[in-house]
Design a protein around this nucleic acid. Structure first.
Lengths: 213, 213
DNA sequence: GGCGACATGATTGTCGACAATAGTCGTGGA
DNA sequence: TCCACGACTATTGTCGACAATCATGTCGCC
């Protein structure tokens, strides 16, 4: 693993975790001293994150953290729905017995987190659930695309996760997905995933009228 | 538009058109003299094309044109099916009257190309059909992803297009898609697109046993 | 004759410097 | 007072050079 890759991961993480909020300028020289490396290394990272859709790069004008409007977040979630349904159906077909157990455990933990009203824990379990699903699917093309789309909408995703009452609704949708996968039911798994993401879009759309950003 | 962007487009085109066939090494210094620019510029292009999935880059070992196995081509086409169905349904909803006419014209030209047995023309019209659909959809997220997936599987796509008898089957599937879109029938458009790509996968799968690469 | 260590060459990773460009501030004139 | 023009500054785009790393071929040893 080369230094550029490391910096790319670090910068990606910093963007996703909010160290650099949407719209922030990413000046190469500043990043240079933050990550202690040359400008070429930083540039490589910026180019990569730009093609991932996490940063905007205008010629001679520099890079900024990409701002995702609610409208675009909806598009992203629609695309994610199409792909992640595919992932879910493949997971239902290919998952091992251990993986199915692991998935059930995650759902159980999610229920606990909801009961304890711990939104941070829930958000992390949510990520874990979807990551596990991607691994189970064995469909690396769709899995990679989904992971990227999740990153792109991470900001809105986070706001959604901490929305009061949302977790309680969401957890049952995850349970439905997990249950279908446990039963090796590809079609139901895909449908459950699709329903889950349509529900996410519904919430985003309601926000669109009133919500900020 | 910066020089790096130009070189990126040129290199992408050269890869897609077969100037650099799959597996070919992309040595930075050689590309430097081919495109008449510095190594930094070439590197930028390679990084971008690597994240697009068109080139492989191993640390300290250089870049090569990505080899896509038949298995991966199937995965790519599955993902494309999921996304392009979404694109088709959005196209059915949002397309203008002129765009619907344009789509019908393309299908008519395709029929002509099939009758004339002109595979090169048909392949080009095929690209045009799908590009037009992406524009009609207004769904930039899905459209960009689909365009990228098409590039990644371009090699197999091309082999499929010149397969004897394939165009005749394919053209009717395109006609079905166009017809659904003309009728503003989102669900049917999506289903027709899905059927089209499942048919593509079917052919790829049959190849998988006997076909080369 | 086969195997492993070592030198060699080719290629990439990283850095600093220079050139080019966009944005900004100040000045002069109408 | 307002607009146009020009210099200045900040930042990016590009280049060449050096260091680091991997692959290859050679030599000696078993």
């Amino acid at each position: 693993m080369t230094r550029t890759d490391t910096i790319t991961d670090d910068l990606r993480q910093d963007i996703l975790s909010g160290v650099f909020p949407p719209g922030d300028r990413l000046v190469e020289l500043q990043l240079t001293q933050r990550y202690d490396c040359g400008r070429a290394t930083v540039r490589g990272a910026l180019v990569e994150l730009a093609t991932e859709g996490l940063v905007d790069r205008e010629a001679n004008r520099g890079a900024t953290v990409r701002r995702i409007s609610v409208g675009e977040a909806i598009e992203i979630t629609e695309a994610r729905g199409a792909l992640e349904s595919l992932v879910a159906s493949h997971a239902a077909r290919h998952a091992s017995a251990e993986e199915r157990v692991a998935l059930r455990c995650v759902v159980a933990d999610m229920r606990e987190a909801v009961a304890a009203d711990s939104t941070a824990t829930y958000a992390e379990l949510n990520r874990q659930f979807h990551r596990l699903l991607r691994e189970m699917s064995g469909h690396s093309v769709a899995a990679d695309l989904v992971a990227n789309l999740r990153d792109r909408a991470a900001y809105h995703q986070y706001r959604l996760a901490i929305m009061p009452g949302r977790a309680a609704v969401s957890v049952e949708q995850h349970a439905a997905i997990a249950s279908a996968i446990e039963n090796h039911d590809e079609a139901t798994a895909a449908a459950a995933m699709d329903a889950h993401l349509r529900s996410v879009i519904e919430v985003l759309r309601r926000w669109g009228d009133a919500g900020p950003i």
